[in-house]
Design a protein around this nucleic acid. Structure first.
Length: 424
RNA sequence: GUGAGCAUAGCUCAGUCGGUUAGAGCGUCGGAUUGUGGUUCCGAAGGUCGUCGGUUCGAUCCCGACUGUUCACCCCA
């Protein structure tokens, strides 16, 4: 086998796909309760969209995007995240004119050319949620509540950390204070922080080096630098979380990797995923819609990483046992197969899951298959049954057997309705 | 982009201090008297021991390169 999947691109085999379905169903159900609607957007966009939204100097844009020039000479990019596309669609269709506050979610693959490791792939999947057109802090709390509800309903425990990054009014003052502080300490910092200090000063606060962290104990706090409006906003967000009884901690060192965030940011963290601690993260991005050429409307959103949720569920080992269901038609001989085939089709029309073996296998083998596939019933149809005009219906669970009539072609519909009723 | 570990059957892994036909468990298929599953017992299929080169009388084992993969840094969901 010399053609294999690409590095960082993974097949999701049927067993694992079951977990994906469970996550998606749970999320869709929770999103419904909060009246979010699904939007589906393309995977491929013009490169400029991401450069403008995520930030020209972020790692994502600088070195992780799958970008290429298409046949028309235009630079296109496989989306590295979902928000930019949703906002582009929002602006392009003037959705704010249909309903002033839009609550949207989207599911799908994202692409980043990173070195793969646990919980990190080149094609990965996110559930991405956005509220566009409203800036009330209660919404920030509601969005966090929704994210944590998805996790709770999946049986996963995570911790919620929140922060406020301020707004264009108060952030410059903080930046200045931080730069001053870092300038003072610069010789004591690690190499990475030296680099970050110049490129994106906020990022140093997130450094994992314990020696750096010990210096940052006395670093200026963004929260102390918030302007009156931002401080008030943050206060109401916290009050909202408290009133919903959602536990959280404030982490004034938390930073987001995308440049567009303002005010509230948050992360849902776990310690069970190795180096990848965030299973979900998001925040407010009040200037972004305008920055992309749309109206000056606020927004907030978050994304959850599907692969990380799957990993957590797999660790839980509390995975549900397979459910017995459906019917295996064990037909022996060509004539029986012909009749069984017609029965299967009629039953499937009635919503019954029907399995059959066409390989002329022994009854024993077909019984084995029925058991292996967790069928609830097996219908035995051989020469004996054909001559009697009665098939044997076996309940695989109780091992009880009974005979049921073999229908003439004209009454198959009626017969299948009765049998469907009986075995479902 | 940087670093470290790993690479033997479909899966999880033994193993050979370098020596004729490389093993186990699980899984798959078959059998245990004619047409009745899950348990048990018996059997079978399935491997160029990642690739290429080197050392050697001889390499799956030692050495090197390459490729793949895993984890971590970085970054991020």
């Amino acid at each position: 086998m010399n053609i294999t999947a690409l590095k960082g691109f993974k097949d999701i085999l049927p067993e694992e796909a079951l977990l994906w379905q469970r996550i998606e169903m749970t999320a869709r159900e929770v999103f419904r309760r909060f009246a979010f609607k699904e939007i589906k957007v393309p995977i491929l966009e013009k490169t400029a969209l991401f450069a403008r939204s995520i930030g020209e100097t972020t790692d994502i844009v600088e070195k992780e995007m799958y970008s290429f020039v298409d046949r028309n000479g235009e630079s296109l990019t496989m989306r590295p995240e979902g928000t930019a596309s949703v906002l582009r669609a929002f602006i392009e269709h003037s959705l704010q004119n249909q309903q002033p506050v839009q609550k949207l979610f989207t599911l799908g693959p994202m692409f980043r050319h990173e070195r793969p490791q646990k919980g990190r792939l080149r094609q990965f999947h996110q559930m991405s949620v956005e509220v566009l057109g409203a800036n009330q802090p209660e919404l920030d709390a509601e969005v966090m509540a929704m994210a944590s509800m998805v996790l709770t309903e999946l049986g996963l425990t995570v911790s919620l950390e929140i922060n406020s990054l301020g707004c264009p009014k108060c952030r410059p003052a903080f930046n200045e204070a931080l730069l001053l502080f870092l300038d003072d300490k610069k010789d004591a910092l690690c190499e990475d922080c030296q680099r970050r200090r110049l490129k994106n000063p906020l990022r140093v606060l997130d450094c994992k080096s314990s020696s750096c962290q010990s210096h940052y104990q006395s670093a200026p706090s963004i929260i102390a630098h918030l302007c009156a409006e931002c401080a008030d906003h943050f206060r109401v967000v916290q009050a909202g979380l408290t009133s919903m009884a959602i536990p959280y901690t404030i982490n004034s060192f938390m930073v987001r990797g995308l440049d567009y965030y303002t005010r509230t940011t948050f992360e849902l963290l776990t310690d069970s995923l190795g180096a990848q601690s965030a299973v979900g993260a998001g925040g407010r991005y009040d200037g972004l819609i305008k920055q992309l050429g749309g109206p000056d409307l606020p927004g907030i959103g978050f994304a959850m990483g599907m692969e990380r949720l799957v990993l957590m569920l797999q660790q839980q080992s509390s995975n549900l046992e397979p459910v017995q269901s459906g019917l295996f038609v064990a037909a022996l001989g060509e004539r029986a197969r012909g009749i069984g085939f017609a029965m299967a089709q009629a039953l499937r029309c009635r919503g019954v899951q029907v399995l059959m073996d066409y390989a002329d296998s022994s009854l024993k083998s077909q019984m084995k298959q029925s058991g292996k596939q967790n069928c609830r019933h097996t219908l035995i149809l051989g020469d004996e049954e054909l001559s009697k005009g009665e098939a044997i219906l076996r309940d695989m669970n109780t091992k009880g057997q009974e005979t049921i009539p073999i229908p003439l072609p004209g009454v198959l519909g009626e017969w299948s309705a009765m049998l469907a009723e009986k075995i479902q």
